[in-house]
Nucleic acid binder design. Structure first.
Lengths: 220, 220
DNA sequence: CGGGTGCTTGATACCGATCAACCCACGTGG
DNA sequence: CCACGTGGGTTGATCGGTATCAAGCACCCG
């Protein structure tokens, strides 16, 4: 089993599928690669496929008239994006850009739709994906509207900790500038937020983060 | 055909369903009423149903630890909400409150799920609903992050205009304070945004809005 | 007439964006 | 080996947008 296959197999898209359906879905997948900073999708483009990240990270973002950009989501390995258009199709609603060396699995919509007609477990998986994304995006709106930048950063750090530990050290999965975008911040603001969290027992050196007292941090 | 039925029949939930399925779905609906300001759902509650608005308006919102609230969506007649949990179920992710005298149709999840197993058109409708909500919510994140308050207000006003007219007069569908919440603003900020748009040819008196030059307003 | 309720207006404070300078690590070529 | 450039990050100064707080205002309804 190739590396790509094993990553895909552990995605929510494939979760719980019978091996027949899973294999046929795998056959539908095109594996494609992108260099850092390359545009994978441009907003408004005709849409005929959705994607699952196999390696690397991608940014989904929109821009306004004068070219400023706002990130909507950062996708990690095993995340899918643009699965929306299984429902309606049409055009992509946002730009997608490779944040580093990226490997994607590309699924043509109509192939998947046909397969889903034979096995509704696939349909249910896609529904589940959309439901998860919808809930996450709603949470994002709420978080932007009622939390301050440091609170959002603290929140993100806590989300990276495994439950049960009183303290923890880990690495950020990607560049700080990317993380800033994900949290709706300018890079400078992320930097300052880390500074502010120092007195809450957060130490950041490069991409390494140490949290002295997880429970204490949760108070903010 | 009752008033409730005719509203529901024109919702996206029922769009394009065969009359057999549509009738069986209608039978599943409980019609329930709420006074203004009453809580329909509280965040964290066990979830076993989703809803379609028949009359009035409802607010979906989250609160933080200290009780401040942020609106996520305002639902109008024929909108559905909480349809997410067809996929996973579990608990409601936000509070829902009646903004005025509200009539809802309540659909028990498992009843709908059973019906959808027999007619996938229903499944497809629900997918379409979720896809629409997801795209709208992503747009909301991007809009919050890249547009100023006046731009968001202008944008909302334009969305209320019918295409083709050079100018237009219409009524806001609900209270300004509700609209402010929907746009992620304090009521004062909405008021000031209306003030700022005056010089772009926007006149607001009570709930009546007049836009002199739609094309000009679109420039902002 | 009195008292809500919803909205507006003004004064102030604060958060975060922006701009500019600087720092550091790293890689490259003279 | 060092000069240089580059990219990512930090730091500081400043500005602008929006929340917040506090009055004041308009309308509705008893």
């Amino acid at each position: 089993m190739s590396v790509e296959t094993s990553v895909l197999a552990r995605s929510k898209l494939f979760a719980g599928l019978g091996s027949d359906t899973a294999n046929r879905l795998l056959k539908l997948a095109d594996i494609i690669r992108f260099e850092p900073r390359v545009f994978i999708i441009r907003e408004g483009q005709r849409a005929d496929a959705f994607f699952c990240v196999v390696r690397g990270y991608v940014r989904l973002f929109k821009t306004n008239e004068i070219g400023r950009a706002a990130d909507i989501r950062i996708c990690e390995p095993r995340d899918t994006f643009a699965e929306c258009l299984i429902g309606g199709g049409g055009i992509y609603a946002y730009n997608v850009q490779a944040a580093d060396n990226v490997v994607l699995a590309r699924f043509a919509i109509d192939g998947v739709r046909r397969l889903a007609e034979e096995d509704r477990a696939l349909d249910r998986n896609i529904m589940r994906l959309m439901a998860d994304h919808l809930l996450a995006t709603m949470e994002c709106v709420a978080s932007d509207r009622l939390r301050t930048s440091s609170q959002r950063v603290a929140n993100y750090l806590l989300s990276q900790c495994s439950a049960g530990n009183p303290s923890q050290t880990f690495r950020l999965p990607y560049q700080k500038s990317l993380l800033a975008g994900k949290l709706g911040l300018a890079p400078e603001a992320l930097s300052r937020a880390f500074g502010a969290l120092k007195e809450a027992g957060v130490t950041v050196r490069g991409r390494t983060v140490r949290i002295d007292d997880i429970a204490a941090l949760r108070q903010m």
